[in-house]
Design a protein around this nucleic acid. Sequence first.
DNA 1: CTCCCTTGTTACTCGAGCGTAAGGCTACCG
DNA 2: CGGTAGCCTTACGCTCGAGTAACAAGGGAG
Lengths: 218, 218
Amino acid sequence: MSEEDQRPPERARRLPRAVRERQILDAAVQVFSRHGYHAASMDEISDVAGVSKPMIYTYLGSKEDLFGACIRREATRLLEAIQAGVQPDLPPDMQLWHGLRSFYRFVAEYRESWTVLHRQALTVGGTFAAEVTDMRVRAIQLVAALVVSAGTRKGVGEQAEFSGEGLSAALVGAAESLADWALDHPDISDGVLASWLMNLVWLGFNDLIEGEVWKPSE
Amino acid sequence: MSEEDQRPPERARRLPRAVRERQILDAAVQVFSRHGYHAASMDEISDVAGVSKPMIYTYLGSKEDLFGACIRREATRLLEAIQAGVQPDLPPDMQLWHGLRSFYRFVAEYRESWTVLHRQALTVGGTFAAEVTDMRVRAIQLVAALVVSAGTRKGVGEQAEFSGEGLSAALVGAAESLADWALDHPDISDGVLASWLMNLVWLGFNDLIEGEVWKPSE
DNA sequence: CTCCCTTGTTACTCGAGCGTAAGGCTACCG
DNA sequence: CGGTAGCCTTACGCTCGAGTAACAAGGGAG
């Protein structure tokens, strides 16, 4: 019954800085993942965030800074999600299994985060590409450590057909590629995806054809 | 001793159209592979090609047309290179082996072509992304056919842990990822790379740890 | 010699989009 | 109640780069 109440101010006004920053980052991830770094415009991001453009610049800095903030936040989320699902006292194949499941759960839930990290981050030359590449290298080395530990425990040395780093790079690529494929097949669960990959890289086609199947041992 | 011969016109003038188009496409692939589609400028491409900008527009059309022409030419080259190395009457693992070797030879020789196709083409939404994706899908289906033929010959049906398409997507991703890795390790030969991948996907880690090794049977 | 088609260039238009100047409004504090 | 600090906007400057007119010149055909 007061004046001006005919239009309830549904548009949230005057929010604290932390909240605005979250909104902006969410919008930025969304827009960057759709168009890529260069084709994304700050105007569209501000539009999606429901905030005017200077807010972005005062809170998050330039376009490059904003992209960096996105990358760092999403990378941290991904690593935390994977580490949350891993149990370091299990045998190597079970560690791999749990890591993969966490990974596919994350990709399914935060597909835009994944797209930004995987596809878009590399197209921007400079610091961010290096950061993302570093993260990827750490993942590869982690996998390599798993594989090598499994190998040395059985007494496998460094022979011509066995290079831990190369194989791990291939494996990580396989996991990423399967993640992309899974984006177009949302009905496949993370357990099934992880199983496929375990059967591929742990058993190989040969055993698979012979009818053998890898299963989580627990 | 004639007039004006102090500066021999080393700059090649007045070449036929076909030659210019090749030069322009070469330059475009180079620049696109370095900066990506959006960050690449037509001015830089014309500079690298040693031609003025309107030539590009009269010969190859808009920036998008130019990029499409690059993608098509490089994709054709890649497919031809792979098909040249394949022999359809061999057993599936040997076909895979030969295809992989051809692939890695191509990537080593035409790394810019590979970069454009793999990294940059997907960042441009629209027709080209679809084209490249189609090519990739064809590759996956081809590999899937190989694997399934190997499987059905042995009597493996469609079971929960065995999906040809998903596995092939993973395998193709592994091959691509290993190609990227190999760009930073030029001393590794295509035969070794292909061997690693064969050992990974054909035998799997388990057999590998047990000391088994896959070798080309010929 | 002259026409005209192909090859080629310089120098511009114009829009998109990053970043900012300048200022308004609200709340809290003294 | 006045001031000050933080939230927020409109409206603009300015650069970069896609695409284009307008013009120039070689060279073969008749």
